[in-house]
């Protein structure tokens, strides 16, 4: 049988060729091209990447943390949502999707003003006395650590010849908590922006679970916890896998979030790449090489994960 493309698919083929295939080819070509004035094929762009190992590590670490938190929030949320009445589910879904209808930058700006030193959260904390409480706790911790240093640790250090010391310089005169421009804020931004991508696939798998399977498990003697472990969770794995993919991939390559919420001092991969194309470090050859490596790593990760979850995936399709 000939697998002929119909004429109707032509627009999509053109579209894909123009906007997906061509750019990838360009990236590959650039990545292996020497930076002018030198010419020709080179691997230099890849060799230079050693300098950025720390950025790679940071990006993957933050993306992993964000993905994990999304999973932690998204799974139970999807699970309990799927048990609610249909009208409740509809409203909840709209609420979950609502932020997505707003521009990504706007949402992130909103978080900036919330997390600022004299932003909404800090003013609320101050009003509630939580900041004073923080100072108090820090002071307490400081004196506790000081006495530990003099007591147990001094004894240990003398015995073992070590120099262990607990820090005693926690701030006790804070007027605000520093939240903006921290890595925590970056993770928060990722979680906030990509959580719906975790919830939707998990929810749609759980909602489709055949109730008679759960009844069968109960019928065979399984307690609620066992039904969850042995039936619901394994059958929802395909949703988890696609949720993880859909959160991890944009998280690892994000750039605006780290700039706006992280202060732009600790670069992420996305920032690094942006810098090579638009920023002062203008070097699209290096930028292409970084992009290529990142794409390869992500694709390999996803491939491995999907192989791992293949069995369950089939199970749900059938």
């Amino acid at each position: 049988m000939r697998n002929k493309l119909s004429w109707f698919s032509a627009p999509y083929v053109v579209w894909m060729a123009l906007f997906t295939v061509a750019p990838v080819i360009l990236v590959v070509i650039y990545a292996f091209t020497a930076v002018p004035p030198a010419e020709g094929f080179t691997l230099d762009n890849f060799l230079r990447m050693k300098e950025f190992a720390v950025v790679f590590a940071r990006s993957f670490r933050l993306a992993l943390i964000a993905t994990f938190i999304c999973l932690l929030i998204g799974y139970p949320l999807s699970y309990f949502l799927a048990k609610e009445g249909p009208s409740f589910q509809k409203i909840a879904m709209v609420l979950i999707m609502l932020p997505m209808w707003m521009n990504f930058l706007l949402r992130t700006y909103a978080w900036m003003s919330i997390l600022e030193n004299n932003g909404f959260l800090n003013r609320m904390f101050a009003a509630l006395g939580i900041i004073d409480l923080g100072n108090l706790i820090n002071g307490g911790l400081n004196s506790l650590c000081a006495s530990l240093n003099e007591g147990v640790l001094a004894w240990l250090n003398a015995r073992l010849g070590t120099a262990l010391l607990l820090s005693t310089d926690r701030a006790t005169d804070m007027t605000y908590f520093r939240m903006l421009y921290t890595q925590g804020a970056v993770v928060l931004g990722m979680v906030y922006n990509y959580l719906p991508f975790m919830i939707l696939p998990i929810y749609s798998v759980i909602i489709k679970l055949d109730n008679s399977l759960l009844e069968a498990a109960r019928d065979l003697g399984a307690s609620s916890a066992r039904v969850f472990r042995k039936v619901i969770f394994p059958l929802s794995l395909p949703g988890v896998l696609s949720g993880v993919t859909m959160v991890f991939v944009p998280s690892v390559s994000t750039f605006a979030i780290s700039k706006m919420l992280g202060g732009g001092t600790k670069l992420l991969l996305g920032d690094l790449i942006e810098l090579q194309f638009l920023g002062g470090a203008y070097n699209p050859y290096l930028g292409s090489a970084i992009s290529l490596v990142m794409m390869v790593i992500v694709v390999v990760c996803m491939y491995v994960m999907n192989r791992f979850g293949e069995g369950e995936e089939q199970a749900v399709v059938l």
Binding site: V231, P234, V316
Partner: peptide
Amino acid sequence: FQKYALFPH
């Protein structure tokens, strides 16, 4: 069960 309800996984 009427529709077997075997565990597909």
